[in-house]
Design a protein around this nucleic acid. Structure first.
Lengths: 246, 246
DNA sequence: ATGAAACCTTGACTGAGATCAAGTGGAACC
DNA sequence: GGTTCCACTTGATCTCAGTCAAGGTTTCAT
């Protein structure tokens, strides 16, 4: 009965806690984790898994950024998901990966071997429940992105992406809710273009335009300051604040 | 013990059987269904549920077509999902609907009251499991569509949509796998445009072009014949056949 | 039949974003 | 310190799809 020794609120090496399942919190006997949980590190640019490959693990991002990417025969690519710390990767019950997973920055993942994890899942109903909720969240995010891809202008797309990154960044390292928001862009212009269905030139031009008009401030190429989040979200064409401001 | 009276292979009034959960097959006692399962019908154009509304049911499409649609303040709309017979609607564990659900044609849905369904789910692990698999399918479909929206040309978008409808249509009413494929378009040009992130004029022009070049044949505005599925899929830019041909 | 309302098609023009091309800036490496 | 490389910026031009407009079909009610 080692469970009692854990202070779950400080279970900081296991980011899944927040959004899915924390093995520490969900398994009574710590021993059950032997050989199930492990860490993997990747360098920026490395491929975590290729589309079509057998995927014998599930896991979550501890630090760094990964992307889910689809590529057409002729080389056109579309990023279909962005994995930030605490995001979950994996498809319990599925054999192979449906898209490439790429480490966009240096990346640390907390992995679980798939078979034991699936066993854990079927014996622990609320893990299955949390996984369903998480998958529904991903589905909502994918569908919100469909609106961005299908109906927004280049300028609105950029503003939408900046809003999302600012929001996620703030939720990972909580800050005051008012005043300027500061963060580093974790993506190259090309990766942003692949996420937004644009070319890298258009991304660059729109960022320059937003900077010139004072919607954002740029220091170097990556360090962004948003003086007025409300204004950025207006540029994004969002009707709601997405829960960012209350 | 009424269960034995059911021939599950002929459980034709309950299309959920195929893709998610069939109450007949998953509940031992038929009595448990009292007051849980019911049918609703809608006319073409009716709204099943508005975005933001409380959603006190889950269910699946028995016949007809429904669409999931997001709308921006200025009226731009993006369809984020198409619900064909046997598709499931609902978000166990969630309160409100995140998008409008519209009856695109006359529609019959088989519904379950949400609370009892959730109870059924937590007491029947494999229902939860099937629901997760189903949600993963929807996520895959949404992400595949992100590639269509972000990177395909108007012509490829139309070909992709026709492929998907042909595929789904064939799976609902199985036919021979070779030879021409015939089906009726269940969507107006405007609805297709909303799904594809195009305008209705562009949809019309591209359909005319595909017709002129013999990729499709049209009888009236809606009745489509595809003489060569392989050719249509080439037009769609798909690298795989999506399981349609083997 | 006649009119009205949807739905669809086609044409002419426009414009947002893609494409092609040249050049800048900074970090890493000899 | 200079070279190289990569990420990024900016300009000029082109093109695909959007916009605006007119007209055609089908359906349904009168």
């Amino acid at each position: 009965m080692l469970k009692a020794q854990f202070d779950h609120t400080n279970c900081s090496d296991c980011p899944i806690r927040h959004r899915a399942v924390c093995a520490h919190c969900d398994v009574d006997e710590l021993e059950e984790l032997e050989g199930i949980k492990y860490y993997r590190t990747f360098e920026a640019g490395q491929t975590v898994i290729w589309s079509g490959d057998q995927m014998n693990f599930v896991g979550s991002v501890v630090s760094g950024i990964a992307s889910l990417t689809q590529t057409m025969e002729d080389g056109r690519t579309q990023m279909v998901g962005l994995l930030l710390p605490s995001d979950f990767v994996g498809r319990p019950g599925r054999e192979s990966a449906p898209y490439d997973v790429l480490a966009t920055t240096d990346l640390v993942m907390c992995c679980f071997r798939k078979k034991p994890f699936e066993a854990l899942m079927s014996s622990t109903p609320h893990i299955a429940h949390r996984l369903l909720q998480m998958t529904l969240d991903e589905l909502d995010a994918a569908r919100e992105w469909m609106l961005v891809l299908g109906r927004k202008t280049a300028r609105e797309k950029i503003a939408s992406l900046l809003s999302i990154i600012a929001r996620r960044d703030a939720s990972i390292t909580p800050k005051q809710k008012t005043g300027p928001i500061v963060f580093d862009l974790p993506l190259t212009r090309e990766a942003m273009a692949d996420y937004l269905g644009l070319t890298l030139e258009t991304v660059s031009r729109q960022i320059s335009a937003l900077k010139k008009e004072g919607v954002i401030e740029l220091e170097g190429k990556r360090h962004v300051t948003i003086p007025d989040m409300r204004r950025l979200m207006d540029e994004a064409g969002d009707d709601s604040d997405g829960g960012f401001l209350i």
